[in-house]
């Protein structure tokens, strides 16, 4: 039994996998042990069954969508980041990208301008003085008087 515990795990080895001493010991043991010879016969009889069974399982499965699934995953994995996409677009369409980038810049500048001007209007609103002289309205602003003429005066002048 002790020898079986040593040599049985060596059964099923391929040539060159055991040391010369192990191989010689195994051969000597097999010569005198019916149980180990029977196990060796079972190993040989079932050799290749695992591969055969798994290949049969694979053969039962429909692989039609497999390759497309792989290619889809590759495309998804290769999707570039924002910076990479911008850099690539800049290389391909520099004018378009510069123009595109100008739009939000101009929009931001316009918004700032409007906001600062409307702020000034609110500030000016506190200093405005209105006077009416006949059909003419005079607004005293910080920049000087502004005359608003009605349509009749405007038409005559």
């Amino acid at each position: 039994m002790k020898d079986c515990a040593i040599y049985r795990p060596m059964i099923g080895s391929q040539p060159g996998e055991l040391s010369p001493a192990e191989a010689a010991g195994l051969q000597a043991h097999l010569g005198g042990c019916g149980g180990c010879r029977a196990f060796q016969a079972d190993v040989l009889a079932t050799e290749g069954l695992v591969a055969q069974a798994l290949e049969r399982a694979a053969a039962r499965r429909d692989f039609a969508p497999f390759v497309d699934g792989v290619m889809t995953r590759i495309s998804a994995a290769r999707r570039p980041g924002l910076l990479e996409r911008l850099t690539r677009q800049l290389r391909l369409h520099p004018r378009l990208v510069v123009s595109g980038a100008l739009v939000p810049l101009l929009a931001a500048a316009l918004a700032l301008y409007v906001r600062s001007n409307s702020g000034a209007d609110f500030a000016d609103a506190h200093t405005l003085e209105l006077h009416s002289e006949g059909s003419t309205t005079i607004i005293q602003s910080s920049d000087g008087p502004v005359l608003l003429l009605d349509d009749d005066d405007n038409g005559e002048s």
Binding site: M1, C4, R8, A38, A41, D42, A45, T46
Partner: peptide
């Protein structure tokens, strides 16, 4: 159990040309 695990059953059933 190394000594009593039914060695040879499969090879006997599978015969000479498995």
């Amino acid at each position: 159990d190394l000594g009593d695990a039914g060695e040879g059953i499969l090879s006997s059933a599978l015969g000479q040309d498995p």
